[in-house]
Design a protein around this nucleic acid. Structure first.
Length: 260
DNA sequence: ATGGTGGCCCGGCCA
């Protein structure tokens, strides 16, 4: 076991376009474990050497043009599992697992859904149900497990700048929130929300129409953890600085610090 | 505001 652990999750919206920001951010924030989403890289193009030179082991599950997830760790990285594991029939690279610092960790990029009448919305709900099933194979609620990433779901209306604008759209629909509640009833805790009850704290803002500067965002990037991990959480923040400056992602990193 | 911006990579798709 290791002591204090700084965990983070960040949808980087192309690691190729964002590597210079990710490298600078790692140097500044000094996280121990980072879950990345939307690398948009094939496995062969993943810059594992760049991360190794900064002290991080890594695992990547990618497909090239779209999606792609990774885990970086400087507290050990063992037992990687790609997607849903052997026999996986997921056509998209949205899930990767590794054990880091004694914690079983998943980096997840939940399907967007697009619209409530779209096949991709049904894929989103089925994908979440599959994740719920897979959890049973990774351990139980009394084991240290973290499932962090871009859920493309705002858990409550407090996590959306204007809920009225998202009626009958994805990210806030009742079936999506029920799927998230299923994960929580399995034993996962929204660690950021436990430490930060203040409403209207967001992790994603549309690039368009000055949404970031006008505080029009959503909190869709979540660090869900079983109680043995959640009870160690001492500090939670969304790094809004990373959403500013040159060529930012449209998501900001979510950071959770764990005590010994 | 049925637009707006930015990633993929060059004609639209995806977010």
């Amino acid at each position: 076991m290791v002591g204090r652990v700084r965990l983070a999750t960040w949808n980087v919206n192309s690691l190729k376009a964002r590597l210079f920001r990710v490298e600078a951010w790692l140097d500044e924030v000094q996280p121990d474990v980072v879950c990345l989403q939307e690398t948009k890289l094939a496995d062969g193009a993943f810059p594992s050497m760049a991360f190794q030179s900064l002290g991080y082991e890594s695992v990547h599950h990618g497909e090239g043009r779209w999606n792609g997830v990774a885990i970086l760790s400087r507290v050990g990285l063992e037992d990687p599992l790609f997607g849903f594991g052997p026999g996986d029939d997921d056509p998209e690279a949205r899930l990767v697992w590794a054990t880091c610092g004694g914690i079983r960790i998943a980096s997840v990029y939940v399907p967007n859904g697009r619209s409530l009448d779209d096949d991709h919305y049904r894929y989103k709900l089925a994908w979440l149900a599959k994740l719920r099933t897979l959890l049973d194979q990774q351990g139980g609620a009394s084991d240290p497990i973290v499932v962090a990433g871009d859920y493309n779901i705002a858990p409550t209306d407090d996590d959306v700048y204007d809920a009225a604008r998202f009626v009958d759209s994805t990210h806030t629909s009742a079936p999506e929130r029920a799927a998230l509640a299923d994960l929580e009833s399995w034993g996962l805790v929204d660690t950021f929300r436990r430490l930060q009850p203040e409403p209207k704290l967001f992790s994603w803002w549309d690039y368009r129409a000055g949404d970031f500067h006008n505080h029009r965002g959503m909190r869709i990037d979540l660090v869900l953890a079983t109680e043995p991990v959640a009870e160690r959480a001492r500090f939670a923040t969304i790094d809004r600085q990373a959403r500013k400056g040159e060529k930012p992602s449209d998501h900001a990193p979510v950071i959770i610090d764990l005590a010994d």
